[in-house]
């Protein structure tokens, strides 16, 4: 496996060939239900565990840092299983079967206040737990739409999966491959929408800044933070932690208040916001270690 994420390998190599397979997988999952579908996660995880040595090694390296002890094979398997569980649950969440889940929300007053002002909000998540669970809760409560910004390549794959599950949600995926991509983001925010990004991952890209993360410096992309400062919207950190079984816990924490960020010293504001984001992400990793879904060498 190359230095890309496991997700990319998971979503099958040939994109054209993938759609029928995704459709089949989704159809089976929805037909047999979550409990039965979960049985298939065990052999699937075992297969991926054995077929990609590099992803397993990266998992072990991460777990050794966060658990502060040498991880056992059972730990690595649990890491994979947590990831696979969240991927499977997305099918049911996107299919509006949110009642299957037991979801607890913390800090929702932060977003409620922003929503009442009607000014739009940027949500910073991570490849950690489930972002989808928040979007599903939002839809259930008649919340403003939450769009997701992602690399064009991923956007294409997600749209493809959505076409098989819930085509109405396709418009909520914004790909980064076009010059006007972020103008779309600005316009949606101005309409009061929420826009989500996962600024922990930047496999390529030059504008990355190292921050201490779980005991060693790791590079984080500066772009999303620069974008947030330019747009002058409140930024809230959002993490949906999978707690096992059918339980999820969603956390909202304020990250950037645009009235506090001084335009004259944008670089300092960006630096402060990045530091805060990385520190919070580290806290979440320590609190729920198996929810970390970057299966590449994060400290490279």
């Amino acid at each position: 496996m190359t230095d890309k994420s496991l997700v990319q390998e998971w979503t099958i190599r040939s994109e054209r060939g993938a759609l029928p397979l995704i459709k089949l997988g989704v159809w089976i999952a929805l037909r047999i239900g979550r409990r039965a579908a979960r049985i298939f996660l065990y052999p699937t995880c075992l297969y991926f565990l054995l077929s990609s040595k590099r992803a397993a090694r990266n998992s072990r390296e991460y777990l050794a840092r966060v658990l502060d002890r040498p991880p056992s094979p059972a730990d690595v398997f649990r890491h994979y299983l947590t990831f696979a569980s969240c991927v499977l649950d997305r099918v049911f969440l996107l299919n509006e079967q949110i009642d299957r889940f037991d979801i607890r929300v913390h800090g929702d007053d932060v977003v409620r206040e922003i929503m009442e002002r009607g000014g739009g909000c940027i949500l910073f998540g991570a490849h950690f737990g489930s972002f989808e669970v928040t979007r599903a809760v939002g839809r259930q409560q008649g919340h403003v739409p939450i769009s997701l910004v992602m690399y064009e390549e991923n956007a294409r794959k997600i749209r493809m999966a959505l076409a098989a599950i819930n085509p109405q949600l396709e418009a909520e995926v914004i790909g980064l491959g076009r010059p006007e991509s972020l103008i779309t983001v600005a316009e949606r925010l101005d309409r009061g929408h929420f826009v989500g990004l996962l600024p922990d991952r930047n496999v390529s890209g030059e504008d990355r800044v190292p921050y201490p993360f779980l005991g060693a410096p790791a590079r984080f992309p500066r772009g999303p933070f620069r974008m947030a400062m330019l747009l002058r919207k409140p930024v809230v950190m959002m993490v949906g932690v999978y707690r096992g079984g059918r339980c999820y816990e969603i956390f909202f924490e304020p990250l950037i208040d645009p009235s506090e960020a001084v335009a004259a010293d944008m670089d300092a504001s960006i630096e402060q916001a990045m530091r805060r984001y990385v520190a919070q992400l580290e806290n979440y990793c320590c609190a729920a270690p198996f929810n970390w879904f970057n299966f590449y060498d994060f400290w490279a």
Binding site: R178, E180, I183, A186, M227
Partner: peptide
Amino acid sequence: LDSIDMLEIALAVSQQFGVKLRADDKNN
């Protein structure tokens, strides 16, 4: 330039010239 640069240009153009660049313009 990347899409963040383009956003920054769009914001500056709107401020300086009062011209809004729109995401849904067919001629983008």
